[in-house]
């Protein structure tokens, strides 16, 4: 269980309903219990925007490595909540970003992830550099590669495509591979890569699903072609065929599909022979839909 989840569990039992300033006072009081402080922090964002001093108190909690991690994480959340009101938060943004940049290299991974996540959502160049450096040199990594890739995908303009391709070829883990693929879903030059991954039966389901989704975005016609071929391929997995069926059903050209005897024959076979009743039903529904459209 992550620190955040433990904190939420504890906080549920703490009292609520205090004023924002009182909440801030509890939140920044080291003598209070973690649970009390975490609960109070949920009501603190409003207090942050009342003065510079209030903001600094919360920032100090975030930066203080002696504070409990749960409290620091909730303090980051409180700041992020306050920052959402862009106009009102304007006077405090500079210090807020500075605080996040400072704790982006914190000894605690959850703190780093939280800070880098918020910075990445702002397309902060410092965060992007740190994340990329970590992917290119694992010794410098501040977060796991899959997390780094996920955060870098918030901004298409990062130089992450090359490193994402490297990770797909030599992935440290399956999650990282999928995140690298998601990042490349915005890269038209990766169409062929996604076609290859989609058709590779040795790839996991998840990888093939991500490839299909990316192809749908980059080259929808290609996805239709592959979906059709996979439906015609008797050696293809049923669940992949069912996904292909969905793609053809939702995005295919109805007229072309109705004329495609070979395709309809394959779907018919799926409706009869599929091991899963769910896939059988999908196939039958598809055939019914085609028949209905033909009647019209």
């Amino acid at each position: 269980m992550t620190t955040k989840k433990r904190a939420s569990k504890k906080a549920a039992k703490a009292p609520k309903g205090m004023s924002a300033l009182a909440a801030l006072s509890v939140a920044t009081n080291a003598k209070k219990t973690t649970a009390e402080r975490v609960s109070a922090l949920a009501q603190a964002p409003e207090a942050v925007m009342k003065s510079d001093e209030n903001l600094q108190k919360l920032c100090d909690v975030v930066k203080n490595t002696d504070e409990p991690v749960e409290v620091r994480l909730e303090a980051i959340n409180a700041l992020a909540t306050a920052a959402f009101a862009v106009a009102t938060f304007e006077p405090y943004r500079n210090d807020y970003i500075a605080t996040l940049q400072e704790v982006a290299v914190d000894p605690n991974q959850e703190i780093r992830e939280s800070a880098l996540g918020l910075l990445a959502s702002e397309k902060n160049k410092f965060a992007q550099k740190k994340l990329l450096d970590g992917l290119k040199n694992p010794a410098k990594a501040l977060v796991p590669p899959e997390k780094a890739l996920q955060l870098l995908s918030y901004d298409v303009h990062t130089e992450a495509y090359a490193v994402a391709r490297d990770i797909i070829s030599n992935s440290p883990n399956e999650l990282a591979k999928q995140e690298a693929m998601r990042l490349l879903a915005a890269d038209p030059n990766s169409t062929k890569l996604f076609e290859k991954l989609l058709r590779d039966k040795d790839e996991t389901r998840e990888v093939r699903q991500v490839a299909a989704s990316a192809l749908n975005s980059l080259a929808p016609q290609k996805l239709q072609e592959h979906a059709r071929e996979m439906l015609l391929d008797d050696s293809e997995y049923e669940d992949i065929q069912a996904t292909s069926l969905s793609a053809v059903k939702q995005f295919g050209d109805d007229e072309e599909v109705a004329k495609d005897k070979a395709l309809l024959k394959s779907v018919n076979r799926l409706s009869a022979d599929a091991k899963s009743s769910k896939y059988k039903k999908s196939a039958k529904d598809f055939l019914a839909m085609v028949a209905e459209k033909e009647e019209k």
Binding site: E90, R93, N94, A98
Partner: peptide, 18 residues
Amino acid sequence: NRYRDDPVSFLAYADYSL
């Protein structure tokens, strides 16, 4: 740019010190 008043450093190239 008033709502994007992020800290920057002029000390050195690619410097992010605060």
